[in-house]
Amino acid sequence: MTSLPQQTDKKLGLVIDLDICVGCHACVVSCKEWNTGGYGAALSDQDPYGDHVSGSWLNRVHSYEAGEGANARVVHFPKSCLHCDDAPCVTVCPTGASYKRSEDGIVLVNEDRCIGCGLCAWACPYGAREMDVAEGVMKKCTLCVDRIYNDNIPEEDRVPACVRSCPANARHFGDLADPGSEVSLMVLARGGFDLMPEQGTKPVNKYLPPRERPAEPSSCGKRSASERESTADATGFFRWLDQALERMG
């Protein structure tokens, strides 16, 4: 059924901290590794050892530069399905392959019903869905639904593969409908935000903004060369040395 549930009991999702993501792509690789052998069809690659490598991935890391000059910052930006409350990819699906679970809010594709029309990928503003060219069905993040409820793996592994593999701890998994959950508190404390809120999709996944930095240090920026080389603020031994060397002419 491609009508959206009125409400979901839980809102399982990710919180991604843009302040500490180092852009290592470990989450990208571990996602592909887990999901190519897990839920549904394998994630195929086309021409994998050739000149034009291409393939389906469920998580990708973009890198942006924001701001100007010395204040510009590089921000690594992982992006996967946001499991939106108002998921446009679900309602456009003509076959009922695309659905949102009422128990935990995860958006999934039933690949046995998918006709590979691609309309859901057009309806998603975020590029979260990619067609698997070999299989002819739509692939997307499952929030590792085959890990998080899996009693056969150690408890610490029952989180999405991307969260488990992140070496910087930039990715967090939890129930965003529970205001007391760790992820909800993190969103509250850090001002977690939605991507493209104007699209009206109400994403469950949240992003934590890069933290404020101290003002521009005096050693760089727009000051003149003579200003930057000034020794007027030296103290103690170095002030004495500076003045002694000055006197020597």
């Binding site: 843009l18 792509h25 990208v28 990708r60 890391v61 973009h62 890198s63 942006y64 530069e65 924001a66 701001g67 100007e68 204040n71 510009a72 910052r73 590089v74 921000v75 930006f77 975020y126 935000f193 939605d194 991507l195 493209m196 992003y207 903004p209 890069p210």
Partner: peptide
């Protein structure tokens, strides 16, 4: 799309 507008103009540095 990136939510980074508060830092200033956003440019793509590297594609995935």
């Amino acid at each position: 799309a990136t939510g980074l507008g508060h830092l200033g103009k956003v440019r793509l540095l590297e594609r995935p």
